[in-house]
Design a binder for these strands. Structure first.
Length: 579
RNA sequence: GGCCCCAUCGUCUAGUCAGGUCCAGGACGUCAGGUUUUCAUCCUGAAAACAGGGGUUCGAAUCCCCUUGGGGUCACCA
C-alpha cells in the first residue's frame, strides 16, 4: 500500500508556532511584563510556586519584567494571619522579582504601591468614573438579605443571579439612603446577552455569555475593592502584558474583561495553568494538613492534646471550617508524631529537598520541554519554556517521583557541594548533630551518606543512632537481627566477643585501618565472609540492620563508643532473646 | 444542578494544532533477575495506556458528533 510521504523537509520536527492573537501585542514591541499576585497568607504552596515559576521564567525568557503584588483586600484575613513568609520561599527557590515589595534586594519599582490595601484612592477614582458613566451602581442589600435570596433560589433549584433591584432605585431614594448613612456595595452593570470571548494561550477560545453572570460586586461595603476589580485596575496600571495564573481563575476572566471594557483598559494576554492536585485527585490545599490531623485524631480517639489549649481544641473540632493556625498544626503533629503532608514550599525545604529539585519537578507538572529531557535547571526552563507547551489537564503531585528527582540531584552533586548543603540543613533544623559530633566525624557522616540520601532530612532521620547516648541504644529483636546475632556457629555474638579486643587494640581509628583489622579477622575466623562480622557490628552500634558502610559508621562513632556499644550488646546476649 | 474546561500506561508526560514515521516513546512507580558488608544505590529485563460509541478518510491516538468520567466555578475570599 502506498504511503504518502511529504518528503524529508516536510517531516522535519514541527515548529510550534502559534499565531499571536492579542492585537495589542502585534502593533508594538511592548516589553513582556508578568506578575504573581498572592494574598499574604503565610507560606507559598506548591501551586502558587509553580505559577510564580512560570511567570518568572516567561518574563526572564523575554528580558521582561516580573512583578509581585500583594492582594490584601480582605481585611479579615489580612488582619489576623497576614504573613509575608512566601517572600522567603520565593527567594529560596531562586525566583527574584523586579518590582514589588522590597525584600533582600528584590522589589521596589515605579508602579507601586504594590500592596492593594495602599491603593484604595486609585480604585476609588475608577469606581467614581464608573458610577458617573452608569457602568456601575450602588446597591443597598445587606449580606443577610442576599444570603436569603440565594437560599431561596437554591431551594427552588434555580440559579441565583442578583435581581438588579438597586438599579430600579431613583436618584432621590439613593440620595436619601446615603443621607441616612446606609452601607452599600458597588456593582458593575454588565451588558445583557453578549458572548464574552477569552482567547486563552493555554485553553484556546473560551466563550461565556453574560446571561451566566450577574451584576457582581466590585466594591465591598468596607470600602475595599473586590478581587476582580483590584486585579483588573492593577494589571492595567502596572502594565502587565501577560496574566498567567491558575485555572481556577479561567471562569473569572470574563468578569475581568467586562471591567476592562467598562473602564476602557486594554486586555492583557491570558494564560491559565492546569491545577496541581493530590494523588487522589482532590484539590491540593493548605487544608490537607488540617484534614490529616483530624483523620488521625478521629481514628485514634484522641480527646485532648497538650500542645493545643482546651478551648482551641474544642473550637477546632466543632467544625471543619475551623482550621488550626500553622504553628498549632505543626506542634500538634509533633506531639502526635505524625507527618503532615507537604503542601508549602517551606515544608519541602524542611524535608530536605534542594530548591533546584522542587523547581525541576514543579516545572514538569503541566509543562514539558517536548523531548525526553526531564532533568534540568532554571536556566533551561527560562530558555525552553513556552505557553504553547503548557498542558490543559490537572496534574497529580507524585511524591515518589519527586523523591527520585531528589536522589538523582543529590547524587549529581559533587562531595564538596553535598557536604556543605547537608551541613546547612542540619544546622538549620537539627543543630544537636553538630553539638554531638566533631567536624571530622560530621564530614565522614556526610560523605558516607552522599550516595544514599533521598533527601537531606531522611539522612538525618536514619543517622539518629550516631548521636544517641551509647547506653540509650535499643536493640531490635527482628528476624534479621536474630539471624545475624544468634544463628550460626560461631554466631554473631561470638564474633563480637572476639572482635572487641581486636578493635580495642587498634591504634589508628580510621575507616581504612578498621577495615584492614576487621577483614583480617574475617579471613581468619569467618571464611573471609565480611557479612558475617559486618552485620553483628552494625547491630551492636546502631541497634538495627541499617547504616552507612560499616567502616565509615565505626569511624564516625569513635573507638570508645564502638567498644561501649559492643559491650552493651554482648551484655544483653541472654536477656534479649528470652521470649 | 447551571455554566465552563479537560480526557494517552497506576502517575507525570511525548505524540494531537498541519491524519500515515505509533501493533504508541521516555520518566517515576511496580514486578523479575544481577551487583553489594545492611539499607539504599547501581545494572539488566518485563508487564503496563490512546475512556466508550458513532462518523469523516485509502488511512484516526490525531479531525467532527454523542455518551461516560473527572475537574473548575457559581461570595461583599482571593
Amino acid at each position: 500500500p502506498a504511503r504518502f510521504s511529504r518528503g524529508p523537509t516536510a517531516r522535519r520536527r514541527r515548529k510550534r508556532v502559534r499565531p499571536i492573537r492579542c492585537p495589542a501585542l502585534m502593533s508594538t514591541s511592548t516589553t513582556i511584563r508578568t506578575r504573581f499576585a498572592p494574598s499574604p497568607s503565610g507560606h507559598l504552596h506548591v501551586g502558587g510556586a509553580r505559577t510564580a515559576l512560570f511567570c518568572w521564567a516567561y518574563a526572564r525568557q523575554h528580558d521582561g519584567v516580573f512583578l509581585l503584588r500583594i492582594e490584601d483586600t480582605d481585611q479579615k484575613r489580612s488582619s489576623d494571619a497576614a504573613s509575608m513568609a512566601f517572600l522567603e520561599d520565593l527567594k529560596w527557590l531562586g525566583i527574584d522579582w523586579d518590582e514589588g515589595p522590597e525584600f533582600e534586594g528584590c522589589g521596589g519599582g515605579a508602579n507601586g504601591p504594590y500592596y492593594q490595601s495602599q491603593r484604595l484612592d486609585i480604585y476609588n477614582t475608577y469606581l467614581d468614573q464608573l458610577l458617573e458613566s452608569g457602568h456601575a451602581y450602588r446597591a443597598f442589600e445587606t449580606p443577610d438579605e442576599l444570603d436569603d435570596a440565594r437560599r431561596t433560589a437554591r431551594a427552588a433549584k434555580k440559579n441565583y443571579r442578583y435581581d438588579r433591584a438597586a438599579l430600579e432605585l431613583d436618584d432621590a431614594t439613593v440620595q436619601a439612603y446615603l443621607q441616612e448613612g446606609r452601607e452599600y456595595v458597588i456593582r458593575l452593570r454588565i451588558p445583557d446577552d453578549v458572548d464574552v470571548v477569552i482567547d486563552d494561550q493555554v485553553f484556546g477560545e473560551v466563550r461565556i455569555n453574560t446571561r451566566e453572570l450577574d451584576d457582581f460586586v466590585i466594591r465591598k461595603r468596607d470600602g475595599f475593592p473586590t478581587y476582580h476589580f483590584a486585579v483588573v485596575v492593577d494589571d492595567a496600571l502596572m502594565e502587565v502584558s501577560h496574566v498567567i495564573r491558575g485555572q481556577e481563575h479561567l471562569i473569572n476572566t470574563p468578569r475581568h474583561v467586562l471591567i476592562q471594557d467598562a473602564i476602557g483598559f486594554d486586555r492583557p494576554t491570558y494564560a491559565h495553568l492546569p491545577l496541581i492536585v493530590n494523588p487522589d485527585g482532590s484539590k491540593m490545599s493548605k487544608r490537607d494538613k488540617d484534614k490529616a490531623l483530624r483523620k488521625h485524631v478521629r481514628e485514634h480517639n484522641i480527646t485532648s492534646a497538650t500542645s493545643v489549649p482546651e478551648d482551641r481544641w474544642t473550637w477546632w473540632l466543632e467544625s471543619k471550617d475551623h482550621q488550626l493556625e500553622f504553628e498549632e498544626a505543626q506542634s500538634l503533629a509533633r506531639e502526635l508524631q505524625i507527618a503532615l503532608p507537604e503542601i508549602n514550599v517551606d515544608d519541602f525545604r524542611q524535608t530536605g529537598y534542594l530548591p533546584g529539585v522542587l523547581i525541576n519537578y514543579l516545572a514538569l507538572l503541566g509543562w514539558s520541554p517536548g523531548d525526553d529531557i526531564e532533568t534540568f535547571d532554571a536556566a533551561f526552563l527560562i530558555e525552553r519554556f513556552g505557553l504553547d507547551r503548557v498542558n490543559k489537564s490537572a496534574a497529580r503531585f507524585d511524591r515518589d517521583k519527586l523523591l527520585a528527582f531528589s536522589l538523582d540531584a543529590i547524587q549529581a552533586l559533587g562531595e564538596d557541594e553535598f557536604v556543605p548543603a547537608f551541613k546547612a540543613h542540619v544546622q538549620a533544623w537539627h543543630p544537636e548533630f553538630l553539638d554531638a559530633m566533631d567536624d571530622g566525624s560530621f564530614d565522614i557522616l556526610a560523605r558516607a551518606n552522599h550516595g544514599r540520601s533521598k533527601t537531606l532530612e531522611s539522612t538525618v532521620e536514619s543517622s539518629r543512632f550516631f548521636i544517641a547516648e551509647d547506653d540509650d541504644i535499643e536493640y531490635q529483636t527482628s528476624k534479621a537481627v536474630r539471624k545475624a546475632l544468634v544463628n550460626g556457629e560461631p554466631s554473631g555474638y561470638d564474633h563480637l566477643e572476639n572482635l572487641r579486643p581486636v578493635l580495642a587494640d587498634l591504634a589508628d581509628w580510621s575507616a581504612p585501618s578498621i577495615e584492614q583489622a576487621v577483614e583480617q579477622y574475617a579471613t581468619a575466623h569467618a571464611d573471609g565472609k565480611l557479612g558475617k562480622v559486618a552485620q553483628p557490628l552494625r547491630i551492636a552500634v546502631s541497634g538495627g540492620t541499617v547504616s552507612p558502610a560499616i567502616f565509615d559508621t565505626l569511624a564516625i562513632l569513635g573507638q570508645r563508643s564502638v567498644l561501649r556499644r559492643i559491650e552493651r550488646c554482648l551484655a544483653q546476649r541472654e536477656s534479649l532473646w528470652v521470649a
